[in-house]
């Protein structure tokens, strides 16, 4: 394995509040290689967005406590000074937000905002920045870019605004692009356009991409590696294929069994995860998922409630990690979970 391009080590983002410390991200580690896509999945409040905003250094100057290491090409982003981080942000690392209408300034033209991102990091004239903005708008598929460059964000449709955001994110050829729910606010046909675009651009720019989403379908189609988060921690991490064909963590099983499918059997009832996601102020002891886990009785001595499992390789694949006390998750999955969620795939693997 080549030297990782981005390594996150034991990243913690804690927010002190009057009620106590909210551990939004609590000890997250992963690696990402150049040209690869990592999908981070989880429900609201699982810490998926917080951990990525921390990479961008968006919690500097707030009361958040960020610790651990974020190593991008050998340098730790957390040790950079504010001005060094400012040089990095938008140039080496950039981000696309979920709602392009609130992420863009309504008083400035789209072209202005895209050109600004270029001018900040490059010593160029206004005119050169503008023509670069037009070039990028063209690259992301906006028709008549030389005219649309002077439009205001409200004159763009939702899909076009998201394209403009992508143009802004990619204008400085970033090495790492973080897309936080890039298609959640969009309709399916527009979502398909944007996902296609992201994939094409990634191929051209050779950037590493982190896609944060709650939509397992998007992850399944886009990501090389998948990280499943729950209550601020990684609970499962592995290649796309491993996660979707041999998931090992009961929370991942729960996610897979609770989504309906456009091709599956309609008579199979959905199997929801009982209960609600935990409060991060006071997360459950031991494994944070144990109050909702239907398999906790299989672990002796109630260890799930007392002892936090480590993120370890459980099966035959060393790069597939999961955080669970179950001794034989593959067997439980094949014998108990798979027959419920995809009876047609039993005995295939």
């Amino acid at each position: 394995m080549s030297e990782a391009f981005l390594s996150i080590r034991d990243l913690k983002v804690h927010f002190p509040t009057t009620d106590g410390i909210v551990k939004a991200t609590d000890g997250l580690s992963y690696d990402l290689e150049k040209g690869k896509t990592l999908g981070i999945v989880g429900e609201s409040g699982s810490g998926k967005s917080v951990s990525s905003s921390a990479i961008m250094g968006l919690y500097r100057g707030t009361n958040a406590q960020v610790s651990g290491q974020i190593i991008l090409e050998g340098s730790d982003l957390l040790t950079l000074t504010d001005s060094e981080m400012r040089d990095m942000r938008g140039k080496d690392v950039s981000m696309i937000f979920q709602d392009p209408l609130s992420a863009m300034h309504p008083y400035y033209t789209v072209g202005n905002q895209i050109a600004e991102a270029y001018k900040v990091h490059n010593d160029v004239s206004k005119k050169a920045a503008r023509s670069r903005a037009i070039e990028m708008l063209d690259r992301v598929g906006i028709p008549q870019p030389d005219r649309r460059v002077d439009d205001y964000p409200h004159q763009f449709s939702g899909g076009m605004r998201q394209r403009a955001m992508i143009a802004m994110g990619l204008i400085n050829d970033p090495k790492l692009l973080i897309a936080d729910e890039p298609t959640t606010a969009l309709d399916v046909t527009v979502q398909a356009q944007i996902l296609d675009l992201l994939q094409d651009l990634q191929r051209d720019f050779e950037a590493a991409v982190i896609i944060i989403t709650h939509d397992l379908g998007v992850v399944a189609e886009m990501a090389d590696d998948v990280l499943v988060m729950y209550a601020g921690r990684a609970v499962e991490y592995g290649s796309n294929k491993e996660i979707f064909t041999q998931p090992q963590m009961p929370y991942t099983w729960g996610l897979l069994s609770s989504i309906p499918d456009v091709t599956g059997d309609t008579d199979v009832p959905l199997i929801p995860i009982p209960g609600n996601p935990p409060s991060l102020l006071n997360p459950p002891k031991g494994c944070a998922f144990h109050p909702r886990c239907p398999h906790r009785d299989k672990v002796p001595d109630g260890r799930c409630a007392t002892e936090l499992p480590e993120l370890l390789a459980q099966g035959s694949v060393p790069t597939h990690l999961s955080r669970c006390h179950l001794t034989d998750p593959d067997r439980v999955y094949e014998q108990e979970v798979l027959p419920m969620i995809a009876p047609d795939r039993v005995g295939e693997s």
């Binding site: 399916v188 398909a192 296609d196 939509d215 189609e221 979707f244």
Partner: peptide, 25 residues
């Protein structure tokens, strides 16, 4: 519309399937 829906079962096959691209809005 149907071909645009991202599908979990794609992961077992690998990559994204051919879809009907609708242009514009």
């Amino acid at each position: 519309l149907l071909s645009a829906v991202p599908d979990v079962s794609q992961a077992t096959i690998g990559g994204r399937r051919e879809r009907i691209r609708l242009e514009g809005d």
